[in-house]
Design a binder for these strands. Structure first.
Lengths: 147, 147
DNA sequence: CAACTTATCGAGAGTGAGTCTCATTCTGCA
DNA sequence: TGCAGAATGAGACTCACTCTCGATAAGTTG
């Protein structure tokens, strides 16, 4: 993976008064290698870290704006690198197995959506931070196996 | 509230082999009156039903496609009437207090979004069922109080 | 209406994802 | 090398949510 991400993470952690320890580096590597949101179970397995360390460090990284927690379609929370690091994107969320895949909208559609949401928010006096767009359905695997 | 919703719910429940009992009717009334997704705590308080009954009947109603469970920004699941009953809409989700408010996109924006998502999904061989769009930010109250 | 059948109700026990504790280990510094 | 403060991880704990099961209500049949 690119060293840029590690540098950016180190900088963010430093300004958040945290160390870029080997455990945290491992988490970032696992998340970056996956390229899609992972459950804590996935992260534990891939990183070899203790459950409590995974949760604690994901919390630290989330606090520092490095990872992002998202509620999927199943009972498990999923984690991914923040959009500041990997760019704005959305997800295909399988309603059968819960898997999530990153996707990006064409820039013109994204721009029009942004404009429409800004108008809505202004009317409701709502201070937009970001938006989440999930496409819910059945992933390639589940659709073909009927799982 | 409109009797149409009750009739539609009764029909759906019947074809799902369930009764439209007073407890279930109360749940539908509470959800319809709220006009926004509610937590189980809210629903318990407003309906006066036992916790276990609320969960069980929300499960029955969800199975029958009458209510929809959604994972919010906080630790609580939230429930609302299905879009078939109240129409397609999205949410303003407060990242501070977790509250959610219903909003609707202009039809032309919604249509363009649909087209873009269909194209994406076709490319990924993903079978779209619906999409979820949440606008994340701070609600009027939290923005003004700094809560 | 009584007896029977089947579904629903709800108090309380149980489950498990996620959090917290704390003794140990690591890191940075002088 | 010694010290101070932070990080680690095994395990206890929390609590939203689910399950169990005896009690109760709603149909149904004669």
């Amino acid at each position: 993976m690119s060293g840029d991400v590690h540098a950016a993470v180190a900088a963010r952690l430093q300004s958040a008064d945290g160390r870029y320890t080997s455990a945290r580096r491992r988490l970032v590597e696992v998340l970056a290698a996956a390229g899609q949101p992972l459950t804590v179970g996935d992260i534990c397995r891939d990183s070899g870290l203790a459950l409590s360390s995974v949760y604690r460090n994901l919390g630290v990284l989330e606090e520092a704006g490095i990872v992002h927690r998202l509620a999927g379609h199943d009972e498990f929370a999923r984690f991914e690198l923040a959009e500041e690091l990997v760019g704005h994107h959305h997800h295909l969320a399988c309603s059968s197995c819960g898997a999530m895949t990153d996707v990006r909208l064409p820039p013109d559609v994204e721009a029009e959506l942004d404009r429409a949401l800004s108008r809505l928010a202004r009317k409701e006096r709502f201070a937009i931070e970001t938006h989440r767009l999930d496409v819910v359905g059945r992933c390639r695997t589940c659709a073909s196996t009927g799982g």
